[in-house]
Design a protein around this nucleic acid. Structure first.
Length: 205
DNA sequence: TCTAGGATCGGCT
DNA sequence: GCCGATCCTAGAT
């Protein structure tokens, strides 16, 4: 396993994000999210995401056309990051999708450390179980060292520190499960929408 | 200004 | 599986 990854020829372009959000969410599974900092480089393979469908989606931060200082980047052009603080202490990372002004995005919920593993371990702590390193939105941000300072970052910009890489890995047809989203019980009908995409991996072996 | 609630996490049973 | 921590954010007053 390489300790770093030359991603210069495989960075996903803006056209990928500028499509229907559900489709982007589904196709994010298997892609590598790479973040370079002065400490080094970490790459996570995405295994769980959720689509948020803008003003008509009661679970979305942009529901009803809400436009606040916090969610401004969610209204911006596709291919940018939307980072926010939840419960006052955890960060959540989203990728803005569809057309600019649609207020749609995909929440990144989980991933598997693919390179920069030592850095992930250092950030997450020595006692965290291997399978628990990045199995939640807040943990994913901690592993990648993402916070509000990365809000609005363009993943498609040349030389961007945060970028999405397609190395050809993708889940098999039958390995993707759709469920309702997590933690949005109070969102009425939208709470039942099947917008969570999960790459169900083999756990044995 | 004040208040209620939140796209969570980790420790404990 | 359950539950409390913890404080920012948005909307109401």
């Amino acid at each position: 396993m390489p300790s770093s990854f030359d991603s210069s020829h495989a960075v996903v372009g803006r056209a990928f994000y500028q499509r229907p959000t559900e489709r982007v969410a589904r196709e994010l599974l298997g892609k590598l999210l790479v973040h370079s900092t002065e400490d080094g480089e970490v790459g996570l393979r995405l295994t769980e995401v959720e689509a948020y469908l803008g003003p008509t989606d009661r679970a979305s931060h942009t529901w009803g056309g809400r436009r606040t200082a916090r969610n401004l980047s969610m209204w911006g052009p596709p291919g940018h990051a939307y980072l926010y603080l939840i419960y006052g202490l955890h960060h959540c990372a989203n990728l803005v999708t569809a057309e600019e002004g649609s207020g749609e995005a995909v929440l990144l919920r989980a991933g598997l450390p693919t390179f920069g593993h030592q850095l992930v371990r250092a950030r997450r702590g020595p006692r965290v179980a291997e399978t628990r390193l990045c199995d939640g939105p807040g943990k994913l941000c901690q592993a990648l060292a993402l916070d509000r300072s990365h809000d609005g970052l363009d993943l498609c910009a040349l030389g961007a520190s945060l970028r999405l890489v397609d190395d050809g890995v993708r889940p098999a047809e039958g390995a993707v499960v759709r469920t309702a989203r997590i933690g949005v019980e109070s969102a009425g009908d939208a709470a039942r929408w099947q917008l969570r995409f999960l790459w169900q991996m083999e756990t044995a072996g």
